[in-house]
Write a protein that binds this DNA or RNA. Structure first.
Length: 807
DNA sequence: CTAGGGTTAG
């Protein structure tokens, strides 16, 4: 304890008080003049006053003054050292802080705690924990401050195991009675995924303060138990700013944005608290989600009238709110007003996003190009922006640029790119993205894995979809289950899909409306009418999900495919919303199968009423007539279509077999015995053209492939391959050619082929089958070259692996 | 002289 100079007790105390007052109003000038008076009156020998002065300088950010005061002190106490230490750790200068710490003769618990806090503030939580363990090793008794700090480190990195150890020290040093420590324990268990322990501790607490309840509120919010959080909140008799903010943030995160705004209003009305930046950020985010421009403007007015600093996060939230709720021009004005140098990437990304939402790609791209330090988010926003506006090629181009020059893609980027692969049904592209996910360490991300399941299923590799799903068994969310159910349903494993759905229910996962799309389509594929009805009712009554058009269409499909065509039609008539093309199309195709001309005609008429140029409806109807032997009606329908100006006939090949007309859609070609179908098709190829129809794309593809394969076998495959590579061949074609080269056992051409490609393709993965022969000496050299250029190889036969040149 | 609970953009 520092006792002031006994000769001048009053003067010392009064000076210290003056310093404290100066500190309160951050008056550096006043502090400096007091400093001068201290020196003049010879008070600078008082360690007490000097420590106070150091504290003043440190808190006002004048670190160099603090340091010089320290240097001039003839006698230094542990307080002096700790104040200096705190000055450095506040600046984030941890290296210097450590140096000072090592020079302290007898560091006490405050010194150690200061170091831990310093690391925490720098986000270096592991180092903070390390400091704590060294402190214990040195047999220094921790204080309640030490515990709260180190528990915060554990909470931040969700280190449950370490947190438990720290808990044991809390007990050992008898610190359990501090509410602050117990609150920190609560928070640690809540954040590290041990809700049970959190509840146990909370129940056992003899005294709970507002903070304790705050932790519980945010625990409930974390687990999506919004109603429980609301209950706790309403029962609290004292609410501080954190309480209100937790509720507003929690509501906002779970889509209860109206509640978030209502809570914000209640806070302004019922509490004497002033909103802080978190309040504003979350309230603005709620406005943005609801696209409530007017409310957003009111909050903006509130911010302005409070003279609140709109630099940093609040300004970003404002810009984002305007950009999202149709006020891009206001957002633009704020951005212009603030000036380039005062804004960060976040502000510009929000603005960019606003333009994308309007479909204005050009200004968005201009913002993107003008950004100097673009981060992953900016890149992703631009890429997703292209995707949302249907500009897949631009998205792909930008993604390639990103992989080459930009920051590492994150799970958002990869999930988006995987959905492109799914919509392109390009397995090769999808596998490249998978390879990048592995290489950038994102392969464990739930959203990436969910997108992978869909991608593999859509590109036909149900095997890999299964593999991915089984690998994430510990981290499955609703989307994972849904994706897998959809995947199985698409591949005709209806029973398995339903089994999986039952597992989902047993696991206590909540299905959403898309899950039910998967479930109902599984029933459709297997023809389980009664099961389908049951699940449909379960959706409505148990899970309280209002059916959407997809669900209605699936029910129509389910009934129709089972031959209950009339019932399907009755179902449509009872629908509370307008049926769409898919609904009628589904009924129409059922009518085709069950040869119900009357209903089929109705369905086709209604369908064409919605979409008069729907060639599919015409050909389905024509086919229905043909199947029923009504050749004249079939021909009439064709004529009707041509008269209606419908020219597109892609996806349909008319094949004459045994004087009967069959329609081969792309699906049939893919699923039936390929060779058989292709043989038939090629025989009547010319006939189709003569009849004036456009041949099916899949058939064309196959033809091309066959031709290439034959020529490769017959001629010099290498030359041909390279010629293809130099042409602007679409990538899935090039990979097909690769496959053919493999069939010809021509690995050297394959390697050369790839080497020509790699100039164009940033990432190329060669997959499927056994590629061991690429691993001879030539192949290895080749692989090393590619690895250096960022080319990744995946070899699914050995699990998913990545070749990056290091191994 | 040191703590702890609420954190924005995709």
């Amino acid at each position: 304890m520092n006792v002031p100079n006994p000769d001048m007790p009053t003067l010392s105390y009064h000076t210290a008080c003056l310093l404290q007052e100066s500190l309160k109003c951050k008056d550096l000038f006043a502090g400096k003049s007091i400093h001068g008076r201290i020196v003049k009156s010879g008070l600078h020998f008082s360690v007490f006053l000097m420590n106070n002065l150091m504290n003043f300088y440190s808190k006002t950010g004048s670190f160099s003054y603090a340091h010089s005061v320290f240097d001039e002190m003839p006698v230094k106490t542990i307080h002096s050292w700790n104040t200096l230490l705190s000055a450095y750790s506040k600046q984030g200068k941890m290296a210097e802080a450590n140096e000072i710490f090592n020079r302290i003769p007898n560091p006490d618990s405050v010194s150690w705690s200061t170091l831990i806090v310093g690391y925490n503030q720098m986000g270096r939580f592991k180092s903070a924990i390390k400091v704590f363990s060294e402190m214990i090793k040195e047999r220094v008794t921790p204080s309640e401050y030490t515990m709260t700090s180190v528990l915060a480190s554990c909470a931040a990195i969700e280190a449950l195991y370490i947190g438990r150890k720290v808990h044991s020290f809390v007990v050992k040093f008898g610190l359990s009675n501090f509410v602050s420590v117990t609150n920190s324990l609560l928070n640690m268990y809540a954040k590290s995924g041990d809700p049970m322990m959190t509840m146990v501790i909370f129940d056992r607490m003899g005294y709970r303060d507002t903070s304790s309840l705050n932790v519980m509120v945010s625990l409930h919010m974390q687990y999506g138990q919004v109603d429980l959080a609301r209950e706790k909140f309403e029962r609290m008799n004292e609410r501080d700013i954190v309480t209100w903010n937790s509720m507003i943030a929690g509501y906002n995160q779970h889509g209860y944005d109206l509640d978030a705004l209502a809570t914000f209003g209640n806070m302004l009305r019922d509490s004497l608290l002033f909103p802080d930046k978190f309040t504003f950020i979350n309230a603005l985010s709620a406005c943005a989600n609801l696209e409530m421009l007017k409310v957003g403007k009111q909050i903006h007015a509130c911010i302005v009238s409070m003279q609140f600093d709109i630099n940093g996060p609040v300004g970003n939230a404002l810009i984002s709110m305007y950009a999202k709720s149709g006020g891009v021009h206001i957002a633009q004005k704020i951005v212009e007003h603030a000036g380039m140098s005062n804004l960060d990437v976040i502000a510009f990304t929000s603005l960019l996003d606003g333009y994308i939402k309007l479909g204005d790609i050009e200004p968005a791209r201009q913002i993107f190009d003008s950004l100097r330090d673009r981060d992953v988010v900016a890149w992703t926003a631009m890429i997703v922006g292209y995707l949302q506006n249907g500009l897949n090629t631009d998205a792909l181009k930008l993604f390639r640029l990103m992989v080459r020059d930009g920051p590492k893609p994150n799970s958002f980027t990869l999930a988006a790119m995987l959905s492109v692969s799914s919509s392109f049904t390009s397995l090769s592209h999808g596998k490249q993205i998978h390879a990048i996910a592995i290489r950038t360490g994102q392969a464990s991300s739930v959203s990436v894995n969910n997108a992978l399941i869909t991608m593999y299923a859509r590109t036909g590799s149900i095997k890999y979809a299964r593999l991915v799903f089984s690998r994430i068994h510990r981290f499955r969310d609703t989307v994972s289950w849904t994706s897998m159910i959809m995947a199985l349903a698409q591949h005709g494993f209806g029973e398995e899909a339903l089994e999986l759905f039952e597992n989902l229910l047993a696991a206590g996962v909540k299905p959403d409306h898309i899950t039910y799309v998967g479930v109902l389509s599984a029933c459709t594929h297997v023809g389980l009418v009664e099961q389908g009805r049951r699940y449909y009712n379960m959706m409505k009554n148990v899970h309280k999900i209002e059916p959407t058009l997809s669900h209605y269409s699936l029910m129509v499909d389910l009934l129709g495919r089972a031959g209950l065509v009339q019932e399907a039609y009755d179902f449509i008539k009872k629908m509370p919303i307008e049926p769409d093309v898919i609904t009628w199309g589904s009924l129409l195709s059922s009518c085709k199968v069950y040869k119900n001309v009357e209903l089929g005609r109705v369905a086709a008429e209604r369908l064409l009423h919605i979409d008069p140029e729907n060639s599919g409806a015409y050909s389905a109807l024509a086919n229905l007539y043909a199947v029923c032997g009504k050749w004249e009606d079939a021909a009439k329908t064709r004529k009707l279509m041509k008269d209606g100006g419908v020219k597109k006939e892609q996806g349909i090949s008319w094949v004459q077999i045994k004087n009967k007309v069959h329609v081969f859609g792309a699906d049939d070609v893919l699923h039936e015995q390929k060779d058989e179908v292709y043989k038939k098709i090629s025989k009547i190829w010319e006939d189709i053209k003569k009849m004036g129809f456009v041949p099916d794309t899949a058939a064309v593809m196959h033809d091309l492939e066959e031709e290439v394969k034959e020529q490769m076998l017959r001629h010099h495959s290498e030359k041909l391959a390279i010629a293809f590579a130099l042409m602007n061949t679409p990538q899935n074609t090039t990979l097909r050619i690769m496959k053919n080269l493999r069939v010809c056992n021509d690995c050297h051409s394959a390697i050369k082929f790839i080497s020509k490609l790699s100039g164009r393709e940033i990432i190329l993965s060669i997959v499927e089958g056994k590629m061991q022969y690429l691993f001879d000496e030539n192949g290895k050299r080749c692989l090393d070259d590619f690895a250096r250029n960022g080319v990744v190889w995946t070899l699914p036969s050995r699990g998913f692996e990545c070749y990056n040149g290091t191994k």
